[in-house]
Design a protein around this nucleic acid. Sequence first.
DNA 1: ATCGTTGTCGGCATCGTTTGCGTAAAAAAA
DNA 2: TTTTTTTACGCAAACGATGCCGACAACGAT
Lengths: 347, 347
Amino acid sequence: MYEPITIKDIAKALGLSTSTVSRALRGSYEISAETKKLVVEYAEQFNYRPNPIALSLKERRSRSIAVVVCEIANNYFSQAINGIESVAYNRGYHVIISQSHESYEREIVNVEHLASRSVDGLLVSLSAETNQFDHYKNLHDKGFPIVFFDRITDEIETHKVVADNYQGAYNITKHLINAGYKKIAHLTSAAHLSISVERLEGYKAALRDNKIPFNDLYVKNCNHGGMIYNEQEDAIKSLLNLKDKPDAIFSGGDKLTVSCLAVLNELKVKVPDEVALAGFSNSPLVELMKPGLTVVKQPAFEMGQTATELLIKLIESKRPVTEFEKIVLQTEVFERESSAKKKPNKK
Amino acid sequence: MYEPITIKDIAKALGLSTSTVSRALRGSYEISAETKKLVVEYAEQFNYRPNPIALSLKERRSRSIAVVVCEIANNYFSQAINGIESVAYNRGYHVIISQSHESYEREIVNVEHLASRSVDGLLVSLSAETNQFDHYKNLHDKGFPIVFFDRITDEIETHKVVADNYQGAYNITKHLINAGYKKIAHLTSAAHLSISVERLEGYKAALRDNKIPFNDLYVKNCNHGGMIYNEQEDAIKSLLNLKDKPDAIFSGGDKLTVSCLAVLNELKVKVPDEVALAGFSNSPLVELMKPGLTVVKQPAFEMGQTATELLIKLIESKRPVTEFEKIVLQTEVFERESSAKKKPNKK
DNA sequence: ATCGTTGTCGGCATCGTTTGCGTAAAAAAA
DNA sequence: TTTTTTTACGCAAACGATGCCGACAACGAT
């Protein structure tokens, strides 16, 4: 079968010892020029490549990192992974991807599997179900490098990279208010997620600053983060059935925003005339929609890059790191028709 | 730092040899029940996990496979990767993802890097630039397991998984014809790609079967597979500037289809009234667009699954495999407004 | 002639795990 | 009691590469 050449083969063929071959290949000064040449040419000819697994065993590191996200078929995450990959690649690391599909159990299995010495570090965005962190805490306490991004937790002290969810939510809510909407509902993921909390706060703050009372009934959680269409459907229907119907919806997640529009279309609710819509999304397609969606966009690629840089810094640090950073990147609002100025007829 | 427990640690702590511990852990019959219990309980208590790297070295395999695609931020590929991951995970394989970004050079570097013994097999969808296959041929000749999917090549004899691009193109072209369009242009990726060739053939066949003459000027190639917006823009503009302007466009790629709509919107060209649009796409968002896009969808998830099953079969085969399969999965057409029946006013 | 130095290279252990073989003690058979 | 068998374990090699240490020649210095 497929049997690549090893350093031993070269040694045997050339009547040298493996140590000599090894040193010749890495240009050690204590090997004569002619031996070096001999070895290097032979290696070149037979296309010798050092066995990365043997190196891993020796150096006790695999030069690979893993990223744990809920779903890669999600624009935010595939963009973030692009950022991750770009940095990892340049630094000589492999990237292993695993998906939790928003399941706590699956997340645990994946993390344990990966961390048991097949990767040097972990890049994590929590699943919607996760509200316990022992599996991370154990690893982190042992000194295993972990960086959280996007969906983070306060329970573990390590590097973190997030978008400014508070400000993003604030800005887009304010945008809706400025466009004339007063009864703004908020559709969001599982309540305990960091992104949900921060976006809810930003939303509340914008209401408060504009003297709009906060209404509990206007906040709906989709605990599966947009994975289950029915959840969004039910949430939106119950919003529309309120006696004091909202005139706008601010949705707090990529899948949520899009499926919100899908539900409204399904129900033949006119956007933005009956209900305006705006929310977090990183899809490049939202501008092509009917209507074009007003979104707040996270710098996904940069977040992935930054998180990876921090992770590699952790991995390659000589001494245990005790000072951790939390990096907050800014979001950007893109205004489109789905939140066009409210028409006066419907006061 | 992070120093996980090894079989040696257990042996030392329990005053046994490593062989005994190893055998106890895997339940060998020649270890007494009490010793087994002792070892297993100790291992459990200290959360022993075998070092996968050491195992890899010994077994000469890494239990990981790599997938080489152009871009994961593409619905087709992220869905396919989901399928790949689902099978790999169940069979105990890691998945390593690498992107060529449609670059031939990048593809080579990635493949060489991965194949030099850090993965057991390769799942490949070719980049748009790739029209030489030596890097694959060398590996394949040495017995290294490779499975191609989606964008394949005839130059290498191994397992392949594709959608029925010919039939898909035929069906959607026929759909356009049935809807009353007669001057159908075709926007596609690099001409040498297998998918481009097959889709072009299907398109031609549908025209032929309906007695519509094939027009060379109606076929436009975007050699970067939709990565560069300007390329699509130029192609479409030149189509619209033809003296005999097409009344419909059939686009042959995920990004192409979407950016085609973007360009048409940009140019204020009414879809489908001025130009109808239909094409290959796996985005779940196309139904929300303005107008909803008629698409032909590939069974991406299943393709990923099937390719992975074939690859693992190759990897785990005792004897060299010489009989290879080419599996063709069916596509599905989803009709929407972008190809609504042509209005008679514009004859 | 003896010693120290320098230039080249090989031996061996190491990383963590598995496994074939050998062997001590205990049990069974003679 | 002696021999054979069984039980239960240890030793060492192997996977591929590295690096410490030591060997040995040739050389100049004493």
